[in-house]
Design a protein around this nucleic acid. Structure first.
Lengths: 346, 346
DNA sequence: ACAGTTAAGGCGAACGTTCGCGCGAACGTT
DNA sequence: AACGTTCGCGCGAACGTTCGCCTTAACTGT
């Protein structure tokens, strides 16, 4: 299937030079209405579509944005991937851009080399990054090369590059305050390892809310692990083994999967999740509402984030000015269900 | 960030013509070892990377493959999306290809126009399609234009285009046979609407297995709906309201979400899922193993499929011959858990 | 009637490759 | 010594655009 209709064919058909056709198509120069009409007719008649490749060779821009993400482990689903991607695709398409997605390599040099190749071959104009940990090597690489990107997530210095992040700290503060309002005083946390930026930022909200309520956090209340069901399960068994006066009556988990594990452990110990021990998750996984009891969780406005990221990135690419403010924090929304209120109807 | 190093720069550095550099880089022509060495040195020294855009303008191939998929509804997660994408990315990258992902539009003309644009602008060399329903308009469009593609899924005529599909019928036969071997004789099905190709193909296995066992299927055992939790829940309530002699003792669901709904309904009716009424799902969602009881489900070999699809597509693009056989069916694997065996340990 | 302005559109060049032809030198053959 | 072959490499062209400069003709004002 070789490409057929080119500028020259259209030009011949409209009896003008092909450069003039180019000008008309790009609304660039003064051309008489009559000629314009003739050219547009020819375009329609021949079904002309400009060659993307030739355009980007000439203009030195690919109108393509790269995105890569860390795949979720086999026993977990990335609950926001589909929505996040689709929202970016839509925003990009409406500006004539597309997303080039490429594999994630756990080995950092290999991953950086993929970024390098996409840049050096001119395949992409910019990247979208999902930042999960401190010292993301891709961030450093792109900053060093001064190559445009926006990030979902942020590092410590909020002014280094355009980003949007969910205010996980705020989310946990909201969750903890919700539990406090239900009368809980001993609230434990199923946290992520200390090297997780996202995890730590969320935990700050936990500490802040309890501090504000004048509650001293026992170090045993903080259990850390890599966010799996098993971690949630085992950690909760430990929590429930504490003495009656220190044993938590509520548990906030950094993701839904640990919360699910926690509820299973609660049940195994003979307690009723949602009634005897309250549990909250994070992400509002689609299945959260179908658990028994349904899980109270924090929902991220994923579509809005994807669209916003894309719009800011493209606006930067087209105008050359970085968006203001450079970083943006959006609040997650607490979806309250029976795992905290205990109104179990199922 | 304008591109820097071009063939000409490398050529100047190695004191040859730039066309010779091209030949050496593409391993095309006879050039003396010494000159080759000089050229490679220059390439390395200057950090030359060929321009993707110029290459594809010249060669008329974009080394890019398009993919679009129907997003899952907000209350569901696509359990295989991440794995499927990553496996395709990897396979593509290792052949120098990348995937261009673009949004799904529910309005067919708009969606077709996106395909048309990607083809006519020369942005992609081929597509991957996920076929869900009969008479997929994209399939027809691409066949009509004679534009290359491979599909995950198939239509009625298995020889129309290269595809791989999970043998859902076989999957259901395996699931039903598993239930038969546990002694069940009255097995109901939570099916999809009649216009779902995937759903019907799965149901064929259900019918075949029961027929082979000499069991007559009561029409009331077949409940249809769009695959949501609620459909699973409500349909199961109806199934359990049947008379004691016809009421099913086992239920096969076309996806995990309906199975989850079914288990909730079973519990609400005072039965124990896995012990009194067996349930199977389809997809082996990551959460399946964490349900109580853990859900027996059919797992699709997603990574293998993604990789295989990509390899066949690229091999076609490079050699021009369609792979043989043109269609391939892979078997899903039954993952047996307590929702059928009743060995509830949680 | 003549210089000055403007509108309409042609023209050459460039973006960075790949491809095929062709040319000179070295080589071996008669 | 004159003549094909082969090797190593240069050269022109083309892929389909966009861009800026240049030409031409018509139109202004005095």
């Amino acid at each position: 299937m070789p490409r057929r209709v080119t500028l020259k064919k259209v030009a011949a058909h409209a009896s003008v030079s092909y450069q003039t056709v180019s000008k008309v198509i790009n609304h660039k120069a003064h051309v008489s209405d009559e000629t314009q009409q003739r050219i547009w007719d020819a375009v329609r008649e021949l079904g002309y579509t400009p060659s993307y490749t030739a355009r980007s060779l000439r203009s030195q821009r690919s109108k393509t944005i790269g995105y890569s993400w860390e795949p979720s482990p086999p026993d977990q689903t990335n609950p926001i991937l589909d929505e996040f991607l689709q929202s970016m695709f839509r925003a990009a398409e409406s500006c004539g851009y597309y997303l080039l997605c490429f594999p994630y390599h756990a080995e950092i040099p290999k991953q950086l080399d993929t970024y390098r190749e996409l840049i050096d071959t001119g395949r992409v104009d910019a990247f979208v990054l999902s930042i999960i940990n401190y010292n993301d090597p891709c961030v450093n690489y792109l900053l060093e090369r001064n190559f445009p990107f926006v990030a979902f997530g942020r590092l410590d210095d909020p002014y280094m590059f355009p980003n949007i992040d969910v205010d996980g700290g705020l989310g946990l503060r909201i969750a903890v305050e919700h539990l406090l309002s239900l009368g809980h005083r001993r609230i434990a946390a199923l946290a992520w390892p200390l090297n997780s930026r996202v995890g730590n930022s969320r935990m700050e909200g936990y500490f802040a809310a309890l501090r504000a309520a004048g509650i001293e956090v026992l170090s045993d209340w903080i259990q850390r692990g890599e966010g799996s069901y098993d971690v949630g399960f085992q950690s909760t068994l430990q929590l429930l083994a504490m003495s009656e006066t220190t044993r938590p009556t509520a548990i906030v988990a950094m993701n839904d999967l640990m919360a699910i594990g926690a509820m299973a452990a609660i049940r195994q110990k003979g307690f009723r999740p949602g009634k005897d021990v309250a549990v909250t998750g994070f992400d509002d996984t689609p299945t959260a509402r179908y658990l028994s009891p349904p899980l109270t969780s924090l929902r991220q406005p994923v579509s809005e984030i994807g669209q916003n990221l894309m719009e800011r990135l493209i606006s930067y690419l087209e105008t050359g000015v970085y968006p203001d403010p450079i970083g943006e924090l959006v609040a997650p929304q607490l979806v309250i269900r029976a795992s905290t209120t205990g109104n179990d109807t199922g």
